[in-house]
C-alpha cells in the first residue's frame, strides 16, 4: 500500500501516539488508562508503519523482535510478583516504596507498576507479532 497521505500521517502520528501511550500507561493507576490500553496505543504506530511502508521497515523502526517483547513483558510481570514472595508474602503481593522528587512531591513506586509495564510490553509484543506475521505472509 503506497499512499502518500498514509505515509506522511504515519510519520507525524508515530511520536504522538507513542507519547500518548506512555501517558496512558502512567496515569492508569489513578485515571482511565493502564498497561493494556497503553500497549495497544503503542502498537498502533508500528501497525500503521507496517501498512504504509511494509513489515520490514516497521521492524527496523521497532528495532526489537516483537516476540522478545512478549517474553520480556511476561518476565517483568512474573518478576514483580516474585518480589513480594521474597518478602515472605504471597506471590504478586504489592510492595511499595516512595520516591521524593523535587517539584513533584512524593511519588509512590510499587511492584504493580512493573507488573503493568510487563502487561504493556506483552500487549505490544502480541499485537505486533500477529500484525507483522500477517503482513509478511504471502
Amino acid at each position: 500500500m503506497t499512499s502518500l497521505i498514509l505515509r506522511t500521517t504515519t510519520r507525524y502520528l508515530t511520536p504522538l501516539l507513542l507519547i500518548f501511550s506512555v501517558f496512558l500507561f502512567l496515569r492508569g493507576h489513578n485515571q482511565p488508562g493502564g498497561g493494556f490500553a497503553g500497549g495497544l496505543v503503542a502498537a498502533a504506530p508500528f501497525a500503521l508503519f507496517s501498512i504504509a511502508f511494509g513489515a520490514a521497515e516497521a521492524r527496523r523502526v521497532l528495532q526489537v523482535e516483537p516476540r522478545w517483547l512478549i517474553g520480556v513483558g511476561l518476565l517483568a510481570a512474573l518478576a514483580s510478583g516474585v518480589i513480594g514472595l521474597l518478602g515472605g508474602y504471597p506471590f504478586l503481593t504489592g510492595t511499595w516504596g516512595y520516591l521524593k522528587l523535587p517539584g513533584f512531591g512524593v511519588l509512590d513506586i510499587g511492584t504493580p507498576l512493573f507488573f503493568d509495564l510487563g502487561v504493556y510490553l506483552a500487549v505490544i509484543g502480541v499485537t505486533l507479532s500477529i500484525i507483522f506475521a500477517l503482513e509478511e505472509a504471502e
Binding site: G28, H29, N30, Q31, P32, G33, G34, G35, F36, G73, L74, A77, L78, G81, F91, L92, G94, W96, D108, G110, P112, F115, D116, G118, V119, A122, V123, V126
Partner: peptide
C-alpha cells in the same frame, strides 16, 4: 492498599494480578 484511584486498573494489576498474569500469558 494499592495506592491507586483507578479501581479498574488496581484490580487488573494488583487485586486480581494473577488473573491478568494468566491473560497476558
Amino acid at each position: 492498599l494499592a495506592h491507586g484511584r483507578n479501581i479498574v486498573n488496581v484490580i487488573l494489576v494488583d487485586f486480581r494480578g494473577i488473573d491478568t498474569m494468566g491473560e497476558i500469558t
